[in-house]
Design a protein around this nucleic acid. Structure first.
Lengths: 117, 117
DNA sequence: TGGCCTGTGTACTACATAGTACACGTTCCA
DNA sequence: TGGAACGTGTACTATGTAGTACACAGGCCA
């Protein structure tokens, strides 16, 4: 299970090759955590950070926050808030889509975006 | 904001009027928590229980688990697991449906159920 | 009037979460 | 050749989560 830390380290070091502002210490400073902590996170010695910290990290590295949160096993709280307003409808929808192919979801998104309701 | 505890107490006492097996103590025993704890939960003196305990409580009271979890501010972990498999697609879908009318969601559920892909 | 059930108050606890603080050895380069 | 930045090891901490344990007062009824 690749994991959050490995992915972050891979992305960060790739950026660091071209730009020294992506050293562990400088990233840690920008996202406001201790370097030692980010080091442990990247090596998987501690669990992934909080949602807020992951979002800052995603912003700094130019990564998709939802994807990075997912690698950490978290669903972003704004999505949760949307679901919580209509729990039964969303529960049914999501369970319905559990085994649907990716294409089906994309299609549904498009239909909803085009506002045919 | 009405809240989890109030709702549980209302439902439970309604059941208890007709059937003494829905006393606080007997419910607590069936769902395997201390009576004092359930008492505090119902009065909002402590935060809502864990997901597992809420699910047992919903089962005992004949309530919808997703709804009771929502009152507790939680999204059930099986839904989260589904979302985490395809975070970007589901994130887009859910945000797209944030302001959609209930009917739109129901319609989408029906379309997906009818295997529209 | 004693035993049983009711709900509740107080005190305490185990574990998880989300980090900080500081010291250390290494490498680079001016 | 020394100081600045690099990543890392060890120790510690504050807060939240999810409850348990036990004692207590009141109602019921046999």
């Amino acid at each position: 299970m690749a994991g959050f830390g490995d992915y972050v380290r891979t992305v960060r070091t790739a950026l660091a090759e071209k730009d020294m502002r992506y050293s562990l210490r400088q990233v840690a400073q920008r996202i406001d955590v201790e370097p030692a902590y980010l080091s442990k996170v990247e090596r998987g010695l501690v669990p992934p950070p909080s949602e807020a910290t992951i979002v800052r990290l995603a912003g700094d590295l130019g990564e998709d926050p939802d994807m990075l949160l997912a690698l950490a096993g978290k669903v972003s709280s704004d999505l949760q808030a949307i679901i919580l307003r209509r729990p039964k409808q969303f529960a049914e929808l999501i369970r319905q889509l559990r085994d649907a192919p990716d294409q089906a979801i994309v299609k549904v998104v498009r239909e909803v975006r085009d506002g045919n309701w």
